[in-house]
């Protein structure tokens, strides 16, 4: 009925159509959020604290909390994920224990975030007595993040051809030196991609944080840099509502009259934050990569 040429054409147009549909959905979502949200964004919106019962509140505290939590959880999870990935890809023998370990990591990465949140609540908030705090939140996020991050760094390392490892060995360089000075720099762009993806998940995560970092924020005194003061922004033991949690809360409780407007604005800010973070991470990563690999 059809010849190969026609089938090929048909298949290609089908694949194109699917790709266009995906792109359109994405475009619709992003433009919808930005069109509804950007008009709400003003300096006052970004720089003033939220209000509990009246209209006109801002998101300054939530914005700061989101960034702080992201940085803290990345500081905890990147070194662990890096170490685990280096072990799994460069040193681990191929045996049953390792394959069980790898499967466990995969299972962990599909753990529902609300379960991670409840676990964090039971374990860190109650058992360890960390309370609703940035620390509890960032450890919960580390649990949430670690499997995916480990997996993506492991894949980045595996993508570097064995030729490079052989080259190191042939020059009498130990495996560890080769990994640190040759393999990691070469894998950097793809590791950065993994970190950016993981950060995107952290920025947008609400369920795991509701029970760990809490849904409230004490009044912050921006000039108070004493990490032990409950009003200091950098105190890791204070509760911290993030943007994503804020959006969820004002929509579910709706004690403020302008909840729709604020959540539209917050969504847009969150999206822009993801863009900025993405761009910054790639820019810095590229600079380091060029410096270490002479740029190709």
């Amino acid at each position: 009925m059809f010849n190969s040429k026609q089938i090929n054409k048909l298949a290609i147009s089908f694949i194109y159509a699917i790709a266009i549909i995906v792109a359109l959905i994405l475009l619709f979502l992003v433009s919808n959020i930005l069109i509804n949200g950007i008009p709400e964004i003003s300096w006052k919106f970004i720089a003033s604290p939220s209000k509990t019962f009246e209209a006109g509140g801002g998101i300054s505290v939530q914005l700061f909390n989101t960034i702080y939590l992201l940085i803290l959880s990345m500081i905890i999870s990147i070194p662990i994920a890096l170490g685990a990935a280096i072990y799994l890809n460069e040193y681990a023998p191929k045996n049953d224990f390792i394959s069980v370990l790898k499967t466990a990591i995969e299972v962990l990465s599909s753990l529902p975030s609300i379960v991670v949140g409840l676990f964090g609540f039971m374990f860190f908030v109650l058992k360890f007595n960390f309370g609703f705090s940035i620390l509890s939140g960032s450890i919960a996020l580390t649990f949430f993040n670690l499997p995916l991050l480990t997996r993506s760094i492991e894949n980045s390392l595996a993508a570097i051809p064995n030729l490079q490892r052989e080259a190191g060995a042939a020059l009498g360089i130990s495996r560890f030196e080769t990994v640190i000075h040759v393999i990691l720099p070469a894998a950097l762009p793809s590791i950065i991609t993994g970190i950016v993806l993981a950060s995107g998940r952290v920025l947008g995560e609400a369920a795991a944080l509701i029970f760990t970092a809490g849904q409230s924020s004490p009044n912050l005194d921006w000039l108070n840099l004493n990490p032990f003061s409950p009003h200091s922004p950098i105190n890791p033991m204070r509760p911290a509502e993030t943007l994503a949690v804020h959006i969820w809360k004002i929509n579910s409780e709706a004690t403020i009259p302008d909840a729709t407007k604020i959540s539209a604005g917050s969504s847009a800010v969150l999206l822009i934050l993801v863009f900025i973070f993405n761009f910054l991470a790639r820019y810095l990563g590229n600079k380091i990569y060029k410096k270490m690999t002479a740029g190709k």
Binding site: L163, A167, A186
Partner: peptide
């Protein structure tokens, strides 16, 4: 391995500059 050098079938320069390829080890 430093005294008995080895070159493989497929060229395997490091993803570094020409200069650093030689000086790295």
């Amino acid at each position: 391995r430093r005294r008995i050098g080895m070159v493989f079938q497929r060229p395997n320069p490091f993803a570094k500059s020409i200069y650093n390829n030689i000086t790295f080890a």
